[in-house]
Write a protein that binds this DNA or RNA. Sequence first.
DNA 1: TAGGCTTGTGTAATCGATTACTCAGGCTCG
DNA 2: CGAGCCTGAGTAATCGATTACACAAGCCTA
Lengths: 340, 340
Amino acid sequence: MVSIPHERVTILAVADRAGVSTASVSRVLNGDERVGLEIRQKVHSVVRELNYRPNAAARSLRSQATGQLALVVDDIANPAYLEIVAALQGVAQEGSYRLLLQSSGGSEAEELAILESLGQRYTDGLIMTSTRFGPDVQDALSTAPVPVVVIGSCLDIPVDCITVDAPEGVRGVVHHLVDGGCGRLAMVNGPGGTLPARSRLDGFLAGAADVFTPISAVLDGRDWTREAGREAAMAMLERQDRPDGLVCANDQLALGVLDACHELDIGVPGDLAVAGVDNTRDASVCRPRLTSLDLSFAERGRIAGRLLLDRISGAVADGPQRIRVDTSLHVRESSHLGGA
Amino acid sequence: MVSIPHERVTILAVADRAGVSTASVSRVLNGDERVGLEIRQKVHSVVRELNYRPNAAARSLRSQATGQLALVVDDIANPAYLEIVAALQGVAQEGSYRLLLQSSGGSEAEELAILESLGQRYTDGLIMTSTRFGPDVQDALSTAPVPVVVIGSCLDIPVDCITVDAPEGVRGVVHHLVDGGCGRLAMVNGPGGTLPARSRLDGFLAGAADVFTPISAVLDGRDWTREAGREAAMAMLERQDRPDGLVCANDQLALGVLDACHELDIGVPGDLAVAGVDNTRDASVCRPRLTSLDLSFAERGRIAGRLLLDRISGAVADGPQRIRVDTSLHVRESSHLGGA
DNA sequence: TAGGCTTGTGTAATCGATTACTCAGGCTCG
DNA sequence: CGAGCCTGAGTAATCGATTACACAAGCCTA
């Protein structure tokens, strides 16, 4: 049973076979009420018989809508974004949209290229995560030909934005550590100059100021990776004024810190309490399990998706929204000072 | 600076502005050599001036190609698939394709619906991972209107398939454990009846037979999760004839086993050597770090993508290919019997 | 110098759907 | 009984690109 090069079955073929006009077929398929019962049934039966499916390209060309959403992340391999992807996939499916996944690889040029390409109209809307917005990107965002929702740090430009109060959350982390008995804090941050690094630092400093706790060091990581965390920790933990409480700007950095502690034979949480940010799967897999601040990626993905759909349908017509989602601290072994 | 509801800039607008025909504009943009230098330059300058981008829908309608690939996974949240997604995203981007991500949630009905929907021609080709193929799905696969490549277990149906010799790999795991000194083996498998579970079991049994090592137990997990692994391990490790070498059908199950060992105060690898399958990030994050069999998801994703592109371009016209990729064993602490 | 070739450009058909407009027939109402 | 309205269905314009075909101009050759 070789599959014969399928001859295309178009709406015209259906119309002919059913002995009606293409208009009627289209109306039946799009649920137009004003079609007689007889025609309606005939069309349905022919559609089944010929296994007809409307051509997506023709439909979009005419209707000026693609039925597609796009998600741009700066690094697909980052497990934190996996939650956004999964959540968004769910929302898209519910709304009968397809989901396009694009990766900018963290490069601004690539981000710009993607935003430019929106002019091709292959998507009805875009969701974007980004850590850094240059003026070009800001410009492209505000003149985008389709609705855009940003997940991440707030900006001054008029774009919908689903954010969390990361500084407030990190501040809470500091309080948690101090409440547990830490008296000398430090931070391993991401690369300076990025928005997330800045906001986490702000929270850390605010928290430390709240409780008048001395800070022994703040080190910027080379990047956001485990290896960067290890390097920073190595440099930091061999000093005399070693901290007893350490906030890491994300879980990967924290994992690196745990590696370093292992090598240096520093007990966690006995000698040093550690906390991360993102609450990725890794946090509950590593040993000791990592206390981590959840930035609600899944929820933000869901909200972003819903908002985007509302924008597309015109259900929301107001100015740019700024939605702030709560963070939550997941306390695990790595900061159980009392229990050590 | 309010953004004015962008009037559409079509190829006709460009043609008018440049004082040439739409045909010429199209030719210039598609790199047709037979266009005079003057027109070529004029068109390029007008395109820049008007910021023109060809409409994707119109282009696909005419050219019968969408510039899109689709990936269907049965569970997006599964980190093992993340590697496929990332690899495929790379291949797609290289080939100037966009990547669609669809999730079947592991439901056969959903898979079927996705395959049916291919008739809408929103994609030029499909890559699919699946653990279970019912007759309907097989049928849909072999009559699909676009090329399809399957990543996973081989089938009898004529479809391109990128697979690994999982049994052979698992057999190697058994040899590794026995070489390290294990004398009594056990396995924690996934749910019976699934293809992956069957192939891993085959490999396990073959390996044990090779070396005449006694098997103390093979338990099927409720599913593929960490919790299922913990439950199975709890049941298994309290028995008298406790194994000293344990093969887990995936990393999540293995993590659960490690949890159980922790609770029961069984030393890994001292009292029990443990190995997993998939070599996910988790394997290098957990403690002890987990020895794991890499099933080369990333590589298979890459190969699948390339093959799909070749099918689409017609570069490969032969019958269905069956490509087998090598597995590799990543030895880590959890099976270092000598070093314990 | 006429006929044929090459080159460059324009005209218009085409892809497959949706929908504004048109029209025929049956109904109501003055 | 005819004007006006409603219903149901068909005709054809439309979306925005690509490309087969037509054709004009310039060049070469016999």
